[in-house]
Design a protein around this nucleic acid. Structure first.
Lengths: 324, 324
DNA sequence: CTGTTAGCGCATTCAT
DNA sequence: ATGAATGCGCTAACAG
């Protein structure tokens, strides 16, 4: 800025002002400054700016996995909203691991983000302490709790399981199967489904709980497992659309009619759910809406408005299609 | 650090050293310092550190879309390698837009990243200029060129199209169809495929070029389009496995046998390609390997070793399965 | 092994 | 509308 200023015949401060608030500089000098910037190829140093102003315009975001469309589409919507206001996103993967998350939170906090986006509501005690001490807005997204660190936006996972069980009862399936991926929230949905199923009537249940991510291949393997364990027909509750699709493919390849013999319920309403044969009945949750709501609430807090609600429940909806 | 130092009975510098190079501090004072850190909940300010040392330990990464598994899995592998060495990733989406990319490059450079990861080899002149002026390692990934900004790691897209056409000739398909998404590299693969097809023999070709991302739904629509345009049977070359899967679903739902009547060739060897019915023949490119190779080469450069090759061609391979 | 002294490049006062 | 002075929190020499 010093150099640019000399070239434009002004001081360093004036260059700073020209960049941060042009209205405070006369049009004439503004023009000279811009010309000098173009000549020198000057790129402002945001590190120095952040250090001086205590505003990094950086938002830290932690997700379990960036290759999982559920999380990446939340982050996508979130960062689009935040970038519109000039914020940049520092993104890292925790790999569904609380210890890793704690380390990452420490690493991210050292870069002095203006706010933080976390996935889920379970964090280590130390992580909570650091976050509280940082005194910045913290969004916990994709789940809800009565005691968020700052605020949370999501839906009740167990409730989707119960709703699915009620759905299965309404449709009078004789028995149910469960195929679930390894993450804690998927497990919570599946367990709530089973509990509600058994609480509400007769009929066996068979489960295949993976300790692995949701993939098509696991969906197929899961369905084979259900058959091995004696599943003869009814509704298969899957913790993800990807698993549901795998179940359908495996059932079809064995000549088992979907939904005649095997009905399949997915989760997530991912784009392909509506494009396969048969189209997948699923629990729809609007991933992008979570990201947008988190951004909106975060921006309000960054603007000094701390009156927003601590819990934002965006709900879910069972979309009935042809797989049930 | 001042406060921590006072608590531990040492000066601020000693605290700094204890954190950056513990071997330079005696075990006794090291213990005292760590205790003081625990008591105060001190979190070092990486902004100040970066400003003072001109090393931000930040790597800037730009991808067209984070929800696209192709790019997210490259970035995943890349960031895992970089994080192991203490680097953090500042990630943004360009949306396949060169202007947007240019703005993002400027924004990212202002945070003084130690290196930059870009997708593809086409960047605006201004972007190239800024990158060159920044004098940092720059990886251009997912494509290759003889004149990278710094170094590139990828494969020859046109070559995959030619290889696919040769494959179609070897298998003696009577005609070919093309379903392609809107991005420039997909287009390059498809065009090379068509050129080679026509150059190497007889047989009609029909194309459906979308101006949209690759989705299952577009795959289905694409195949309907091919039929409308008179495609009667042969190989369908798809610019992505997702499109290929859509083509298969649409063909099957119309009672057209795959691969008997319609053969389908995908691109990417995404995990599901091997898990659907029939399993998809595809052009395999190892996304994670690109990320790892980029990280490896970048780390070498960050370590001062500038002898690495400017062009790293990791190639591709046609994996024949049941859809052809 | 530890401390002193100088900046890093800006934004933020307070002047004028 | 512009400038001078000061400090953000840390690292990098240089001493001792």
């Amino acid at each position: 800025m010093e150099t640019v200023g000399r070239l434009a015949g002004v001081s360093q401060v004036t260059v700073s002002r020209a960049l941060s608030d042009p209205s405070k500089v006369s049009p004439a000098t503004l023009a000279k400054i811009h010309e000098a910037i173009a000549q020198t190829g000057f790129v402002p140093n945001a590190l120095a700016g952040a250090l001086a102003s205590s505003k990094s315009m950086l938002i830290s975001a932690l997700v379990p996995s960036i290759t999982n469309i559920v999380y990446s589409s939340m982050v996508k919507a979130f960062s689009e909203e935040m970038r519109r206001e000039g914020y940049e996103i520092l993104l890292s993967e925790t790999g569904f691991n609380a210890e890793e998350e704690e380390k990452l939170i420490a690493a991210h906090l050292s870069r002095r983000p203006d706010a933080m986006f976390l996935t889920g509501i379970h964090h280590s005690a130390q992580a909570r302490r650091m976050l509280l001490a940082a005194e910045i807005p913290v969004a916990e997204v994709w789940d809800i709790t009565d005691s968020p660190i700052d605020f949370c936006v999501g839906f009740n996972h167990a409730e989707t399981g119960r709703a699915a069980a009620d759905f299965a009862r309404r449709k009078s399936y004789p028995q149910v199967g469960v195929v679930s991926a390894g993450d804690e929230r998927a497990r919570r949905r599946s367990e709530a489904f089973l509990r509600q199923w058994h609480r509400s009537g007769e009929g066996a249940s068979v489960s295949m709980l993976f300790d692995a991510p949701a993939t098509l291949a696991n969906g197929r393997a899961g369905f084979r497992g259900l058959l091995d364990k004696g599943f003869t027909g009814g509704l298969v509750h899957c913790s993800s659309d990807l698993l549901a699709h795998g179940v359908i493919i495996e059932a079809q390849s064995r000549g088992l009619d979907v939904p005649g013999r095997i009905a399949v319920l997915g989760f997530g309403d991912q784009p392909f759910a509506d494009a396969v044969e048969p189209r997948i009945t699923t629990v729809r949750v609007d991933m992008a809406a979570f990201g947008r709501a988190a951004a909106q609430s975060m921006l309000a807090r960054l603007g000094g408005d701390r009156t927003g609600p601590p819990v934002i429940d965006l709900g879910f909806e069972i979309v009935e299609r042809e797989s049930t």
